[in-house]
């Protein structure tokens, strides 16, 4: 069977910085693939290359269409969910209408999807007014317009609270069970372990490791630490953690890091050595 997505020697440079360096792998149809790696490892760049919205060397084929040459054909075959659904001005109904028309589908389908994701009551509400969980469900709705076989999700749960995160995960499992190919990034190991068939571990633009979740060397007792910091401390914290060998991920007013349970105190050590004040933190043991 033809792979749903094929990455063939994909390289991408920003000036002298190699964001992607000779990345090659395949995503079999119906599989769920997680892209794993620290900030700046190249996950988002890879997604952008796949969507054909940025130039790159090498070749990416999505259901046989070249991302570089036939970006629109590729994008019509991919449902894309961003980390945060942007704050569009128009109400939900109009957004569904807009994306339906851009994807060339009947917006009645959108109505069914809104119903399925329990968003029908938001039809006339501005996107801005929705909660985080609702916005991500809306993003999913829009991504599923035209019933694409491939879903691409870039940190879909990063900004969600625990219960919304769980809900979204349940939906994603459903979608996977429907036979869709899913490519997603996440920095929560629990999510990766639960949803992914295969993990592609990217570091510094290269595929460091790839395989079934269970077979991966990464596999160990991990904890997920969410550090709440002042806005001004976020970038020094990321720098300090990176130079201490961790893979931090910075989000809204917080830095997340997944570490082996045995090394969790080293995170705080590195931060205090760099004079970064931690205002609060939460700890989730990954199961």
């Amino acid at each position: 069977m033809e792979p749903a997505i094929q990455f063939d020697h994909v390289s991408k440079r920003f000036g002298s910085f190699a964001a992607l360096d000779d990345v090659s792998f395949e995503v079999p149809s119906g599989q769920s693939i997680a892209l794993w790696g620290s900030n700046g490892a190249g996950k988002t760049t890879l997604i952008r290359c796949m969507l054909g919205v940025t130039a790159f060397r090498g070749e990416i084929a999505v259901e046989g269409f070249s991302s570089a040459k036939h970006g629109k054909d590729v994008r019509v075959r991919i449902g894309y969910v961003p980390q945060v659904m942007p704050l569009f001005d128009p109400p939900v109904g109009e957004m569904v209408d807009l994306i339906s028309r851009l994807r060339g589908v009947d917006s009645a389908e959108g109505l069914r999807l809104l119903e399925r994701f329990e968003l029908k009551q938001t039809l006339n509400k501005p996107v801005k007014s929705l909660s985080g969980g609702m916005r991500q469900r809306l993003a999913l709705t829009l991504a599923l317009l035209g019933n694409p076989h491939i879903l691409v999700l870039d940190e879909p749960t990063a900004n969600l609270d625990a219960s919304s995160q769980k809900d979204l995960l349940t939906l994603l499992h459903q979608l996977k069970d429907e036979g869709r190919t899913i490519v997603f990034t996440s920095h929560r190991w629990s999510e990766v372990r639960s949803l992914a068939d295969t993990v592609v571990h990217l570091e510094e633009g290269r595929v460091k490791e790839m395989g079934a979740v269970s077979a991966l060397a990464l596999q160990q007792d991990l904890v997920f630490i969410r550090l709440v910091l002042d806005e001004s401390s976020i970038s020094p914290a990321s720098t300090a953690l990176t130079s201490a060998g961790f893979q931090p991920y910075s989000g809204d007013g917080s830095v997340h890091v997944t570490v082996a349970d045995a090394h969790k105190m080293d995170v705080f050590g590195a931060l205090s050595a760099a004079d970064v004040r931690v205002r609060n933190f939460t700890l989730e043991v990954e199961e």
Partner: peptide
């Protein structure tokens, strides 16, 4: 700034 441009670009439309 709002991210809407990036979002639209991920749809089957061109810049």
């Amino acid at each position: 700034e709002q991210g809407t441009l990036a979002y639209l670009l991920a749809q089957p439309v061109s810049l």
